[in-house]
Amino acid sequence: MLFIIRLVSIAGLSFLLSLIMPWWCLILVAGIICFLLPAGSFNALLSGLLGGGLLWMVMAWKIDVETNSIMSSKIVELFPVDDVNMLIIATGVLGGVAGALGAFTGNSFRKIFIKKKEKSFYS
Rank of each mutant, 00 (worst) to 15 (best):
M1T: 15
M1A: 15
L2W: 03
I4P: 04
I4L: 14
R6G: 12
L7N: 06
V8W: 10
S9A: 14
I10P: 13
L16P: 09
L19I: 07
I20N: 06
P22D: 00
P22F: 01
W23F: 05
W23G: 01
C25P: 09
I27E: 00
L28R: 07
V29Q: 03
I33W: 05
F35S: 09
L36N: 04
G40W: 00
G40F: 00
F42M: 10
L45I: 12
L46A: 12
G48M: 05
G48Y: 06
L49K: 06
L50W: 05
G53E: 02
G53M: 04
M57A: 14
V58I: 15
M59F: 01
K62A: 13
I63L: 09
D64E: 13
E66H: 13
T67C: 06
T67V: 08
M71L: 12
V76D: 02
L78T: 08
D83Q: 13
D83Y: 12
N85M: 14
L87N: 12
L87V: 10
I88M: 10
I88D: 04
I88T: 10
I89C: 02
A90S: 13
G92R: 08
V93A: 15
V93M: 15
G95K: 06
G95S: 09
G96C: 06
L101C: 15
T105K: 07
N107L: 11
N107D: 12
R110C: 01
R110D: 00
K111P: 00
K111L: 05
K116C: 00
K117L: 04
K117M: 02
K117D: 05
E118V: 10
S120R: 10
S120Q: 08
F121M: 08
F121K: 13
S123V: 08
